[in-house]
Nucleic acid binder design. Structure first.
Lengths: 143, 143
DNA sequence: CGGGATCCAATGGGATACTG
DNA sequence: CAGTATCCCATTGGATCCCG
């Protein structure tokens, strides 16, 4: 039960760990699929907001500018399915549903916070790079 | 030239740093926009692959399973515009264009690598959570 | 080889209305 | 309040052709 299983993907390429700096970039790869979920626009924001908090549906909706009710629902369901967010329904009227990070979601939060921090720290450099790029592009078109 | 500028966003809400754990989640916020770019499916993969390497267009295309020529072009242009990737054209025939991370892109790579590593480490937990979720969902529908 | 331009299909995602 | 369901449009992104 604890031995490795080699799956035949139909190709003859060797996908072993020949290169420690290389990882599996195939579409059907687990990591790729999870990355798509985790690196999602809304997921990122939801996880970032749920740090040390426990928010209700409407609170999240209000905090995340621009998200529609539909996308918040979809995003929360995905995160719940992935075991990153815990959903608690309080049987009262009116309904009260709260969302919080699971321990697993908490570990991801650290990583995401790093990404957010990086963005905050370098936003000026990026803005400058964009301005520079746009200026060059404009200069080439109109001599 | 080095004093802070306060921009009036047209609203009367106070978006000051009242809460150190809270950040600006408005759509027109720089961080939000950059996050969207940086947390993009393909951008993530390109940056992850360009670490300590310098790859040609076709090499990137081959490495990233499932990316179309169009999306690779678009992604590389965006990354170049943001100052994260440097594009070098060698004036030979046939053309030889190489891409590499800029120093700024290098700093981002660290962060992204953390995200990729997190995914690799926790993929089994996530897969288990999904299976569990799906099992419960199926159980509820068919009694 | 490394794209730019174009066309078209898929899908993401908003608006709205209804429910427990 | 916290969704679900439906409709529908806008953007994303793939396929194809062409050019330097």
């Amino acid at each position: 039960m604890d031995h490795e299983v080699t799956v035949d993907h139909g190709g003859s390429v060797d996908y072993g760990e020949a290169d420690p700096f290389q990882w599996d970039t195939r579409e059907d790869c687990q990591v790729r699929q999870i990355l798509d979920r985790v690196a999602d626009k809304w997921s990122l924001l939801v996880i970032a907001l749920l740090d040390r908090r426990r928010l209700r549906f409407t609170e999240l909706r209000r905090e995340i500018d621009g998200i529609s009710q539909r996308m918040l629902t979809v995003t929360l369901r995905q995160l719940e399915r992935d075991g990153l967010v815990k959903r608690t329904v309080h049987p009262v009227v009116p309904p009260r549903v709260e969302y919080e990070l699971t321990p697993l979601g908490g570990t991801l939060h650290h990583t995401i916070q790093t990404l957010v921090s990086w963005t905050e720290e370098h936003q000026n450099e990026i803005a400058a790079a964009r301005a520079d790029y746009d200026a060059r592009a404009a200069a080439e078109e109109s001599p």
